[in-house]
């Protein structure tokens, strides 16, 4: 397959971003390949109900 791209005028006024976080990227430019991977574990699976016990240290 031949993928043909014609880059014409690209003119942007304002970009307003609150946050770029957790291995994210804000890119003004070109990239050949971008690979992003993310895992996220949140309640209900990570909900602890019980007395205060500290997490095991490193």
């Amino acid at each position: 397959m031949i993928f043909q791209v014609y880059n014409r005028n690209l003119n942007v006024g304002n970009i307003r971003v609150i946050g770029v976080s957790s291995s994210s990227i804000l890119l003004v430019g070109d990239a050949e390949t971008i690979q992003l991977a993310s895992t996220f574990d949140t309640p209900a699976e990570s909900l602890i109900i019980g007395p205060f016990v500290p997490l095991s240290p490193e």
């Binding site: 770029v20 990239a31 690979q35 993310s38």
Partner: peptide
């Protein structure tokens, strides 16, 4: 461009890149 914050191994780039690999 106005960015309030970048955190936790994030990148703000003006320019070109060949390969990007980001993991969180």
């Amino acid at each position: 461009i106005d960015v309030l914050g970048a955190s936790s191994s994030s990148i703000v780039q003006l320019g070109n890149t060949k390969k990007i690999f980001m993991e969180s």
